[in-house]
């Protein structure tokens, strides 16, 4: 059953298409991953789902309720944990949770118990009565997550919840998300950490430049690539020109496809090779004919990064670097202010 349906969703910021014709269906009780580099449009999509910004076009329904027409009903259903942790540093963690509970009209009789349950679940007993201004990044994220869960939402929306966290906090959050999913909560999680999405998500959407470039079960997406993932180097650090020459050679070899030059790894060549027993011999002969030698050759199982690489021609890391240079964070911050 599709609990959340996003149809032809678009959003523009002045001359930039933040989201373009997005179509996504999310099943009830699933953990849905949004993968993409910074600036891909993940936060915009999540802010629309959280009713913080309105789409320009398209339709979003959660539990068959139209998000644009009935935003208050949607707010009853969702818990939102934003990318930027915004706590009132003067309040203690407990006071913040109490404040949040009142905003969600939780009766006094239930409020204290729920706060206490979350304090225990997220291991916050030792510091919950300290002011939020004294918290570390991990503590802030945990209290923020607790605030998003207080009213027992049907859908939990998390925007990059583990960025910059220590391992302990990250593990606590991962375990909690798994438990919440097992309890039937629908979770939407954006991340640019491949291992996080791979570990947690039932379904993943890969988003780039505001467009969905692929979606499905992570294992399915990886297996769809087929063959064996090979990373080849003819030198520790090749030049782009040299890699282009090697790419031309590889193009001539039968059974090799989807060759991509990976600038993030010293201009290595990543490709998929069909499983043939004499493949390595053929490769060596062809390279030797053009006076190249194999410096290193690694075989691996496909990862989500390979899925991203095949779809965009860039690794996620490359895309991050590219987007970091392209983004105007000051302008984005102003746009995000109400």
């Amino acid at each position: 059953m599709n609990y959340i349906q996003i149809k032809n969703l678009s959003k523009r910021y002045f001359d930039v298409n933040a989201l373009e014709n997005i179509n996504i269906k999310i099943s009830k009780g699933s953990l849905f991953g949004l993968l993409g580099p910074n600036g891909a449009g993940k936060t915009t999509l999540l802010k629309i789902l959280a009713t913080l910004i309105s789409p320009d076009d398209g339709k979003v329904e959660i539990n068959e309720i139209d998000l644009v027409k009935k935003p208050r009903q949607i707010r009853e259903l969702i818990g939102y944990v934003a990318q930027e942790i915004s706590l009132d540093k003067i309040l203690t963690g407990r006071e913040l949770l109490d404040f949040q509970a009142d905003l969600y009209h939780i009766p006094k009789t239930k409020k204290l118990q729920r706060i206490q349950d979350l304090i225990i679940k997220l291991d916050m007993e030792d510091w919950i009565d300290r002011k939020c201004g004294t918290y570390s990044g991990g503590m802030k994220r945990r209290i923020d997550l607790a605030a998003g869960l207080l009213h027992l939402p049907k859908v939990l929306i998390l925007d990059e919840p583990t960025v910059g966290l220590d391992i302990e906090s990250r593990n606590i959050i991962w375990d909690l998300l798994k438990n919440l999913k097992d309890d039937g909560m629908t979770i939407i999680l954006s991340s640019h950490y491949l291992n996080e999405i791979d570990y947690l998500a039932d379904t993943v959407v890969i988003i780039n430049d505001g467009k969905v470039i692929d979606q499905g079960n992570p294992n399915y997406l990886k297996s769809k690539l087929g063959g064996e993932r090979i990373s080849l180097k003819v030198r520790e650090f090749s030049s782009p020109e040299e890699s282009e020459k090697v790419k031309e050679i590889l193009n001539k070899i039968d059974g090799i496809r989807q060759i991509v030059i990976n600038s993030a790894q010293g201009y290595s060549l990543n490709f998929i090779a069909e499983k043939e027993k004499d493949f390595l011999t053929k490769l060596k002969v062809e390279l030797a004919f053009s006076k190249f030698e194999i410096f290193s050759l690694t075989q691996s199982q496909p990862s989500l990064d390979d899925v991203y690489l095949q779809a965009t021609g860039k690794t996620l890391q490359d895309a991050e670097i590219f987007m970091a240079g392209k983004r105007d964070l000051k302008k984005e911050s102003k746009q995000s202010m109400r």
Partner: peptide, 9 residues
């Protein structure tokens, strides 16, 4: 922090 208020029902 205003977003925390605006997301609440």
């Amino acid at each position: 922090f205003l977003n925390r208020l605006l997301v609440a029902p």
